[in-house]
Each structure stands twice: as C-alpha cells, then as structure tokens.
Amino acid sequence: MTKVSMTVNGKPASGEVEGRTLLSSFLREDLGLTGTHVGCDTSQCGACVVHVNGKAVKSCTMLAAEADGAEVSTIEGQAAPDGTLNAIQQAFQDHHGLQCGFCTPGMVMSAAALLKDNPKPTEAEVRAYLEGNICRCTGYHNIVKAIMAASGQDVSAIAAE
C-alpha cells in the first residue's frame, strides 16, 4: 500500500492505495466522490473525466499513485458553494443536454476543458472534441447545443429545441 495525497476540489485528500488502484476508484471509493462515473474498461466512454493539474484526464486510465501531489477537480467541485451551477452546468440544464445523467459528469468536465482552450468552438469542433465521451441518451444534439450556448454563442437557430 502506498500513501497518496492530493488536492481534490480545493481540499486536501489522502489515503492508502494499492499500486493498481485507479484514480477513478480512489475518488469514488476512498473519497466517496461518486459523481465521477465508470462506464467502460477501455478508456473510451469518458464518463470518468476529471481535471488533473488543469487538464482533462480519464480517471479510469490513471493510477491514483500518479496523481500524488496533483490538483484534481471533479464534477462535485463545479458548482458554487451555494449550489449555483456554473455556466456549463446551467447550459446543460437549459438545453436539456442530459437524460439519464450517467455520462454527464464526464461531458461537463470535457466541455470545461474544451472551452478553456477554445472559448468559441464551432459545431464541428465541439463534435470532434467529444469523440472520447459517449452518450447513449441524447443523440448528442442537445449536448453540442448546450456547449455552444455555454460558450456564449447564439444557438436559437439550431434545429428544434
């Protein structure tokens, strides 16, 4: 067992982990941050995306030990302390960008990483960026629309609510 310490959503967190413990397992099972979801075992679905030192990472593909000393940000840390949703979360609600909610944490975290690098992405850029996040409910229509809206673009002309 190895001791790991990191900052998660601005607070110190530490625990004893096996060498093989994944960051996703550490977050979910040791820290109780169950907002990060695991939807596959081949690093394809993106439900587990978190930010590590400001970069979007699939937490099922990173060992907890590798995140020792890192700044980790998860879906639980996105809203304001009073519960107010951030702009991306709010856009997902406004535009019905989620249904069952399982892929949603990863979608929101990926969208945040996209908008940080590319504040006004085109539709094609949003779709290309989401290649590593699978949603089975929405057909992506309202996810793409929500992310474009969160970037401050007028989405009212996009087909059908």
Binding site: C40, D41, T42, Q44, C45, E123, A124, V126, R127, A128, L130, E131, N133, I134, C135, R136, G139, Y140, H141, I143, V144, K145, I158, A159, A160
Partner: peptide, 20 residues
C-alpha cells in the same frame, strides 16, 4: 465485446436533427 470493437455512435458521427 468492447468500445474498441463495437462502434458506438459518437458526437462526430451525427448531425443536428430537425424534429417536429
């Protein structure tokens, strides 16, 4: 038997839809 082998639709496979 995995998302490496079973092709799930991704965002860049699909367009916006006109729904009425």
């Amino acid at each position: 038997a995995s998302y490496m082998d079973y092709a799930m639709p991704r965002a860049d496979d699909l367009p916006f839809y006109q729904v009425d």
